[in-house]
Design a protein around this nucleic acid. Structure first.
Ligand SMILES: [Zn+2]
Ligand SMILES: [Zn+2]
Ligand SMILES: [Zn+2]
Ligand SMILES: [Zn+2]
Lengths: 140, 140
DNA sequence: GGGCTAGTTGCGACTGGGTCGCAATCAATA
DNA sequence: TATTGATTGCGACCCAGTCGCAACTAGCCC
């Protein structure tokens, strides 16, 4: 257990949004100025192996980066809005049921799951509907 | 509609495994020798926008590439085995129910979903159990 | 406390997937 | 067939992530 690892772990734990590796590096530098990019990546790899964090793609909404969050007791779905970019979290017993079904029916030993949904969030869906109504009311 | 696009589309449609962009390029070159990497990427982007194909990460089992498959009538889960690398597909009414629930409860307008599960496939889970039994039977 | 050593770090070079700007080309329509 | 807006190929580029290696520590034993 080194100071560098402690820094990365603390940053992930206290974060209240989904951080990518670059953001993680920046924040970790506040606590441990000299810390290197490679060390952050290596620590992420370690924490993934220990199953302390989950890796997310968030539908690659902003480039190919990956995001990280501490593993919660209950898996949750990430809803990514293509229009405004917001990420919503959603969890449901149905998801747990589905995982149980996969374990039973396919005999698959689940270690990690990643359910991401892309589309329009409630606010954006409403906004688009309204825009469409206006467009059809006043056709060019 | 150009010959290049036709080539890419035909390759994806006739593929019976999950292809990444590089594999797609190779196969498309059989039909359309001069086709360029950029064109393949641009066509993939187009097909994604038209919702004709889905993009998969397959749990980044082999690097950071992305894989593509034609959108099927029914969404399916991809089960990726960390041990042998096999990809299994699984679909269930529970998944459809979960999507419906998200639409209703969160008011989220779903355009695309991606559910990936990592772990050990049935065969590999059995193999590991067996190896563990043997290790404990003959301790060093 | 003072070595010892396996494990970790920082650095810099590198890989590989993916993007972009631009001139040349082409498909589609009239 | 002439026109033209969209598409292509090319090359340079970007950026996330990886790797090899020498220097450095954390943890342990004395
Ligand atoms: Zn939105
Ligand atoms: Zn989350
Ligand atoms: Zn990804
Ligand atoms: Zn397997």
């Amino acid at each position: 257990m080194t100071a560098q690892r402690r820094a990365v772990i603390e940053v992930i734990q206290t974060a209240n949004e989904h951080l990518d590796a670059a953001a993680l590096l920046d924040l970790a530098r506040n606590r441990e100025p000299g810390i290197d990019r490679a060390t952050v990546y290596r620590t992420i790899e370690l924490l993934k192996r220990l199953r302390l964090i989950d890796e997310l793609d968030l539908m690659h909404l902003q480039g190919e980066k990956h995001y990280y969050e501490v593993k919660t007791r209950r898996d949750h779905v990430h809803l990514a809005c293509f229009r405004c970019g917001r990420i919503e979290e959603y969890s449901s017993p149905l998801f747990e049921q589905l995982k149980a079904e996969i374990t039973e029916q396919a005999g698959f030993e689940i270690r990690v799951t990643r359910l991401e949904v892309g589309g329009n969030c409630h606010a954006c869906a409403e906004a688009e509907k309204k825009a469409q109504r206006e467009a059809s009311a006043k056709p060019r």
